[in-house]
Write a protein that binds this DNA or RNA. Structure first.
Lengths: 234, 234
DNA sequence: CGCGGAATTGATTTGCGTCAACACACGTGG
DNA sequence: CCACGTGTGTTGACGCAAATCAATTCCGCG
């Protein structure tokens, strides 16, 4: 860097990689250019190692977030200390955006699952922005809507299907719904997938084992599917 | 009615009870007067007996709804025919509003749980209205947000707690969180409550039975709670 | 009074969580 | 290069919570 660089130029250079990632995210892509510029300018960027916690359930909420790289796990902790995962957010995904409509405390805890860099936005600030710019409020509304649908799916699956069925479902959702054979690389650790599906890690293991009879082979993070159609019928 | 009454006056009189209920609903209360007037004018009112189905999962979506009276059950049906309840909507509640953001098919089935009168709105029409009137889009956004929070709660409870705990939770949510004793009238049939909590009706029965040890008495739809504080600790 | 749907109770089964032991891969330091 | 520790995934044994099936009982309503 040059010595004579101004503060503004410095800010533009610093985190330029993050800024680009953020600019490319679905959220920023669906708002007006002005709003996007404002969001990029006010965003704070952080990179955190796995297992670090972003916030705890019940904590006073100041920001909401967009994952740029890595994964973040949202979960709730029961009275006995057990945790239930509600969502795992990957690159481009936004979380805690419900709070824009009034809640003042986080309703889940959030911790980094795999080393992640994250953009954070001030809630009250974005609230004002949304009042001014309809593209923002409608983008947020669309996010809420899609999160709602996703979690409804998840809940229905939980209640209707057994572990192997849900795992099959998950695999099908991952693979670009061909028929015939397919090969998938799981996006993250199996224990995370287990949590996502509401299973203990052991149960996921067993589910994979039972899918072996249906032409599914697992080695490390690579999953080979013999026949996608067959899997769909489980 | 007078003979000389115009069409417009006639429409105003017909369904006047429904119109009033609709006008008093949280949705209409939180939009601009003009938008409210428009919604009331374009709403269609229906009264349906229990068990009638409003729409089926996968059906092409034309309308979304607001319950004015009675209850509607939203559920999804598994491959084996079993059903999982996702939500039960009572007076004032809106459902299927996700579709305003693009989905073109219903994601659940909906049937009347207890004789219900319902207002329906054209999705594309309201979509246009929301583009024009920010109070509408923000009201819908708020609805989405609160539904999302509710279902997240529900999902976390499912995964973290046992049947008696969830039932206790439900009772506490019903009763105006006093301490000391309380008496509640269940809003609908026990089998509905069971579905809502992700339980078989028999399991709900047993859960009530097991709560007897904690000072909960059930007779018909009336539930007596000995000590609210004690119930909270289960 | 008698009928039918709802709710309860009991017996049995099943899915999955829990605990514990073990296999495996990876990186570290001797 | 090999011994070692750690973190992650697998496998087995066991128990519990709740679904299922079946048999009554309760209650509302014609």
């Amino acid at each position: 860097m040059r010595d004579a660089e101004t503060m503004a130029e410095g800010r533009a250079k610093i985190h330029s990689r993050e800024r680009n990632l953020l600019a490319a995210s679905p959220l920023l892509q669906s708002v007006s250019p002005q709003a996007a510029a404002h969001l990029i300018d006010t965003a704070l960027f952080t990179t955190l190692p796995a297992r670090s916690t972003l916030y705890d359930e019940g904590e006073r909420a100041r920001d909401f977030y967009c994952v740029l790289y890595g994964y973040v796990r949202l979960f709730r902790t029961g009275r006995d200390g057990r945790q239930a995962d509600l969502r795992i957010c990957g690159p481009g995904e936004v979380f805690a955006e419900c709070l824009i409509h009034g809640g003042e405390r986080y309703r889940t805890s959030a911790e980094v699952a795999e080393t992640a860099t994250i953009a954070s936005f001030g809630i009250t600030d974005v609230r004002r922005l949304a009042d001014r710019d309809a593209t923002v409020s409608s983008a947020i509304s669309a996010l809420l809507s899609s999160h709602l649908l996703t979690i409804m799916d998840c809940m229905a699956n939980d209640r209707l299907y057994t572990a192997p069925q849900r795992v099959a479902d998950y695999l099908l959702a991952c693979c670009p719904s061909d028929d015939g054979a397919a090969s998938i690389r799981l996006p993250y650790q199996k224990s995370l997938i287990a949590g996502l599906l509401g299973l203990a890690p052991e149960a996921l293991s067993r589910a994979f084992a039972s899918l072996k009879a249906n032409g599914v082979t697992v080695r490390g993070r690579i999953v080979q599917i013999g026949d996608v159609e067959a899997l769909r019928k489980i």
